[in-house]
C-alpha cells in the first residue's frame, strides 16, 4: 500500500537496473553465440551443396527459430531447375 510516507523513503533503483541487465544480457549473449553458429553452419552447408550443384550464395538460408524450450534449425536451399522440373525447394 502506498502512503504519503513513501515520498520520504524512496526505494533505491540501481539494484533493479543491475538485475534487469543481468537477465537481459544472459539471453542476448546466448543468442549472439547462436549467430556465430548459424554463420559457421551456413558456410559448411554451402560448401557441401556446391560440391554437387551450382547455387547462388543468396539462395541458401540458414535460420535458428526459437520457440519456448526448443529451437528449430531451418535450412532453405533454392536450386536452379534440375532437368525438366522447374524448381526444387529442399527443406531440411
Amino acid at each position: 500500500m502506498s502512503s504519503i510516507f513513501d515520498i520520504f523513503r524512496r526505494r533505491p533503483t540501481a539494484n533493479v537496473a543491475r538485475e534487469r541487465l543481468q537477465i537481459l544480457l544472459s539471453h542476448e549473449r546466448a543468442s549472439a553465440g547462436q549467430e556465430g553458429l548459424v554463420v559457421a553452419l551456413r558456410e559448411e552447408i554451402l560448401a557441401v551443396i556446391a560440391k554437387y550443384v551450382k547455387v547462388d550464395r543468396d539462395q541458401v538460408q540458414v535460420k535458428v527459430e526459437r520457440s519456448g524450450e526448443t529451437s528449430i534449425l531451418a535450412i532453405d536451399v533454392e536450386m536452379p531447375a534440375l532437368t525438366d522440373k522447374p524448381r526444387v525447394a529442399m527443406r531440411a
Binding site: 533505491p12 533503483t13 540501481a14 537496473a17 543491475r18 541487465l21 543481468q22 544480457l25
Partner: peptide, 16 residues
C-alpha cells in the same frame, strides 16, 4: 547517487 542506490555502482558495471 551511486551511494544512494540510484545509479549503477562501479562494481555493478564491472560485474556485468
Amino acid at each position: 547517487r551511486a551511494a544512494r542506490g540510484d545509479m549503477l555502482s562501479i562494481e555493478d558495471v564491472l560485474e556485468i
